Amino acid sequence: MSESSGRTRDTAEPLARGDRMTTATEVFVAHRNLLFTVAYEMLGSATDAEDVLQETWLRWAGVDLDTVREQRAFLVRITTRQALMRLRTLRRRKESYVGTWLPEPLLTAPDVAEDVELADSVSMAMLLVLETLGPTERAVFVLREVFDLDYDEIAEAVDKPPATVRQIAHRARAHVAARRPRGSVSPAEARDALDAFQRAVETGDLQRLVDILAPDVVLLGDGGGVVQAVLSPVVGAAEVASLVAGLARFGDAASLRSAQVNGHPALILRLDGEINTVLAVRIDDGLVTGLYAVRNPEKLSRVERENAVSR
C-alpha cells in the first residue's frame, strides 16, 4: 500500500513547487516533537530516532501534498514504517550488547512530568517493558495507547488489516499491563523522595539509603562494554545501598544534581565536570523501587540539553 493511498486533499489549485517546499517544511516542523516521541518510544534510542526523522523528512519532502488530507497521520505513518525497519536492525545489535541494555536517557522539561500518561510512556521502566514486545506489537501499542490513533490509521502504518491490528493491540495491552510499573506518584512526592535519596547518596550513609530503598529494589547498569558497570541486575536494599554509597568516595571531584530524565526524577553524576552516569529513579509509595544507571558514553549526549517530547 503506498503511503498516499486513499488520501486526497480538497484544494482549488495545486501548490507551486516553492510553496510546496515551504508548506512541507512548516508542517514537518510543527509535528517534529510528536514524530520524535513516536520514534523514540519505538526504539528507546534518541540517536536512532533522529535518524528515523531524517528519513521521514526525505520521504515527506518528495510527497505531493495535494494528495495528502491528514498530514499528522501521514507523517506518523512514515515515521512508524521507518522506525519498524530500524527496530529490527537494533534487535540484532542488542543481541551482542555487553551487559544490560538500557534506553538512551533524555533530559526532559519539568512540565513533561505533569502529563502523567506521556511521562509514563517515555519512562525507563515502560521502555524496558516495551522491549519485551515484538516490533509490530510495540508499534501498535505505542500508536494506540500513547497517541490514540484509530485502528484504521494504525493498520496503514503497520500494513496490517484493521481486524488484525485490534487483536495485536489487545495482546500487547495485556502483555504490558502484566509487566508495567506498579503505579505513579505525584511530582511533589517524587521530588521529596529524590531529595532524600540524593542526600543519602552524597553522604554515603548506608542506613539512610536502606531506609529510602524498597526491600526488593532493582538496580540495572549499562556500560555497553565501554566503561565499568554491573553486568546483571542487583536486587535488594542492602546490596543496592552498598553499591550506590560508593559514589560518595569521589569527593570534591564529583557533583550530583537532580534532573528530570524521561519525565521522571533522576540524578546526574559529573566527574571533573564531565557527565559520568545518569541514574534514573523509579519511585513507588515514597520508596525507590528501581534504579537505572546509564554509563555508556555513547548514550549520555542527550542529557546536556532538554529534549522536547509530546503527544
Rank of each mutant, 00 (worst) to 15 (best):
D285T: 09
W57R: 00
E202V: 07
M85P: 03
R208P: 00
A253Y: 13
S45N: 15
R9T: 11
L15D: 02
G134W: 01
R138Y: 06
L53H: 05
R92S: 09
A174T: 07
R270F: 12
R295A: 14
Y292F: 15
G273N: 14
R77N: 15
L271E: 04
R282F: 04
V165H: 01
S121H: 03
E131I: 07
Q167R: 13
T23P: 01
H170D: 14
V235P: 03
V52L: 09
I168C: 02
A169S: 11
G236Q: 06
A83F: 13
L287E: 09
K299I: 04
E41G: 13
E306V: 13
P103R: 11
T23R: 13
L267H: 05
T277V: 13
T67G: 01
G286E: 11
T100D: 11
F28V: 03
R88H: 09
V142R: 10
S2R: 08
A24S: 14
A193Q: 05
M21A: 12
V116F: 11
A61E: 09
D222I: 12
R91L: 15
T89A: 11
T80W: 03
L127W: 01
R20V: 07
P265A: 10
G18Y: 14
P162H: 06
D115P: 06
T136C: 05
P233L: 10
K299R: 13
L269E: 05
T289Y: 02
L43G: 12
A163S: 12
V288H: 08
V52T: 07
L75Q: 10
V240A: 06
V176N: 07
E156W: 01
D10S: 14
G44D: 04
I212M: 03
N276L: 10
A172R: 00
R171E: 12
A241N: 04
A172C: 02
L271S: 08
D192G: 08
L247P: 00
E95Y: 04
I168Q: 00
A39S: 09
E274W: 13
S232N: 09
T108H: 12
V142T: 15
T108E: 03
T80Q: 00
D192W: 07
A163T: 14
E131T: 13
L243N: 10
F197Y: 13
S121R: 02
L127V: 07
E26P: 01
L243R: 11
T108Y: 12
L127K: 01
L102S: 05
L118R: 09
A254N: 11
R180F: 04
A163L: 03
L118M: 09
G263L: 07
A172M: 01
M126P: 00
P181S: 02
